[in-house]
Amino acid sequence: MAGYGPGIIGDFLNLLHPQSATLDMFAVIERMAPLYQELVPETIPYPVFPAEDGMVLWASTAEGDACFLVPGVEGSWRIGVWFRQWAQWEEYEESVPVWLLRQAEGSLVIPGLPLRYLPRFAAVD
Rank of each mutant, 00 (worst) to 15 (best):
M1N: 08
G5E: 10
I9M: 11
D11A: 11
F12I: 02
L13K: 11
L15N: 03
P18I: 06
P18Q: 11
Q19F: 05
A21C: 05
T22C: 04
L23S: 06
M25F: 05
V28M: 09
V28S: 01
R31L: 10
M32C: 01
A33Y: 02
A33N: 04
L35V: 08
Q37V: 09
E38C: 03
V40S: 09
I44D: 06
I44C: 01
I44P: 08
Y46G: 00
Y46L: 11
P47M: 08
A51M: 10
A51Y: 00
E52H: 02
G54K: 08
M55H: 11
W58V: 14
A62F: 09
E63P: 03
E63G: 07
G64D: 10
D65W: 01
D65P: 06
D65E: 08
A66W: 01
A66N: 02
V70W: 03
G72L: 13
S76R: 01
S76C: 06
I79S: 11
V81Y: 06
F83D: 00
R84H: 15
A87T: 13
W89K: 13
E90C: 00
E90A: 00
E91N: 03
E91R: 04
E93D: 14
R102S: 08
L113T: 09
L115R: 05
R116G: 12
R116L: 09
A123H: 03
V124L: 13
V124Q: 00
